[in-house]
Write a protein that binds this DNA or RNA. Sequence first.
DNA 1: AAGGTGACCGGCC
DNA 2: TGGCCGGCCACCT
Length: 114
Amino acid sequence: MTKTSDNFFERVYAVARQIPYGKVTSYGAIARALGTARSARMVGWAMNAAHNLEDVPAHRVVNRKGLLTGKHHFDGTNLMQQLLESEGIVIEDNQIIDLEKHFWEPEIRIYFCE
DNA sequence: AAGGTGACCGGCC
DNA sequence: TGGCCGGCCACCT
């Protein structure tokens, strides 16, 4: 909280929490929203801790190609896919079909207002 | 304190 | 998007 690092995680969580139902976004998009476009990897790392929090729908976050890269980190191997399919998202071979159709980009303006 | 790591991205072949 | 390489930034041991 007092540490800046926690602030960074908080921002990642804040973005993920705002992902609408039935929509998905990419790590890079979140990183861009935070102003740290080059630390997309860090976003994934934050997600690692975020998936522990039920407030953060980490299953709605995929990589740029729409690949469910993080599904391996969930409880089940296909739990992430099941969740996304439950939201109306079509997934084939761990990959989201019509990614742009379900893609949602976070609003940057919110996170610059500190 | 330093090194290794990672749920990535973009560029190039 | 098929595959490989480099960069990048914060976290962990």
